[in-house]
Write a protein that binds this DNA or RNA. Structure first.
Length: 159
DNA sequence: GCCAACGTTGGC
DNA sequence: GCCAACGTTGGC
C-alpha cells in the first residue's frame, strides 16, 4: 500500500466536496508526470489531500483510491477547459487514454490541518517531490516522508 | 495580484 | 530536435 499526495483548489473542489460526493472522480490532471503517477495508483492506496491556491495551503485530510486509471471524461468534453482532441483520438483508435482519473473515496480529515510551510521546512522532506518539483499536482510519498508528515500531524496516516 | 518555476508549443 | 515565446501553477 502506497501513499500519495494530491493538490486541489478548495474553491473548485475541497475536501468537504469530496466528503459529500465520495467516491469522486479525481479528474482534470493535465500533466504527464502527474498522469504517470495516477497510472501507478492502486486500490487501497492512501491519498493525502492538499488544499492549494488558498489562504493557508495545507494537507487537510485523507482519501483512499477506490478505482484506478479511468479515462478522464472531461478530456472528451469540447466545452470543458480540459478538453483534449488527442485524448479523443486515442480512444477512437483503441489506444490507452491519454488522460486518466482515479476515483477517490473520502476517509477523514486531519485532526488539525498541516500547513505546507511546516512540511516543507522539515529536513526529511528536503528531497521530496513536494519540495523539489514545483507545480506537480500528484506525487508519491516514500516511507520517510510519510513518517515525517505523520509526526508533524501528530496522528497516523494509515487507513 | 505578483512572479518564479517550469511545462508546452511551434517555427526553424 | 533545438529553443524562444508563451501559458499555467501555486506559494507568497
Amino acid at each position: 500500500m502506497r501513499h500519495w499526495l494530491v493538490k486541489t483548489e478548495p474553491d473548485t473542489f475541497s475536501l468537504e466536496d469530496l466528503r459529500r460526493e465520495s467516491p469522486a472522480l479525481w479528474d482534470g490532471v493535465r500533466n504527464y508526470q502527474a498522469r504517470n503517477f495516477l497510472r501507478e495508483m492502486r486500490c487501497g492506496d492512501v491519498v493525502l489531500i492538499q488544499h492549494s491556491s488558498c489562504k493557508v495551503p495545507a494537507i487537510v485530510g485523507l482519501a483512499v483510491v477506490s478505482e484506478i486509471a479511468l479515462p478522464d471524461p472531461t478530456a472528451s468534453q469540447p466545452d470543458h477547459a480540459g478538453f483534449d482532441p488527442r485524448h479523443v483520438a486515442d480512444l477512437e483508435a483503441g489506444k490507452p487514454p491519454r488522460w486518466l482519473a482515479p476515483r477517490l473515496a473520502y476517509l477523514r480529515p486531519l485532526s488539525t490541518t498541516l500547513p505546507l510551510s511546516r512540511i516543507k521546512a522539515a529536513p526529511p522532506m528536503a528531497e521530496s517531490h513536494l519540495v523539489r518539483r514545483a507545480r506537480l499536482s500528484v506525487m508519491p510519498l516514500n516511507e520517510n516522508e510519510i513518517a515525517c508528515i505523520a509526526s508533524l500531524a501528530g496522528e497516523s496516516l494509515m487507513p
